[in-house]
């Protein structure tokens, strides 16, 4: 299934947002997630399905001013 992860085309077999994070080896990472422009809380990732063409954002703490 083709989706967009952090602006890049990606192929995944994961059915949920949590599954996608595991696939990307980010299961235990400190990240925040959004699906199609809306935030998905960590507690909701298991229950959040992803579908063809979805846009996923995976954000981490970063340097800032």
């Amino acid at each position: 299934m083709k989706i967009i992860v952090n602006g890049e085309p990606a192929d995944t077999v994961a059915g949920t947002l949590a599954g996608l994070l595991a696939e990307l080896e980010l299961a235990g990472a400190i990240v925040a997630t959004a699906l199609n422009g809306d935030m998905v809380r960590a507690a909701r990732r298991e229950a959040t399905p992803i579908a063809e063409g979805d846009r996923v954002e995976i954000l981490a703490p970063m340097q800032g001013g």
């Binding site: 954002e57 954000l59 981490a60 703490p61 340097q63």
Partner: peptide
């Protein structure tokens, strides 16, 4: 200190080490 949120890549995981440092 001010911090930000940016896209995390699976390979580098730069954000994780930055957060640990802070």
């Amino acid at each position: 200190v001010t911090v930000s949120l940016r896209r995390e890549s699976g390979a580098a995981k730069a954000g994780q080490s930055f957060w640990q440092l802070i």
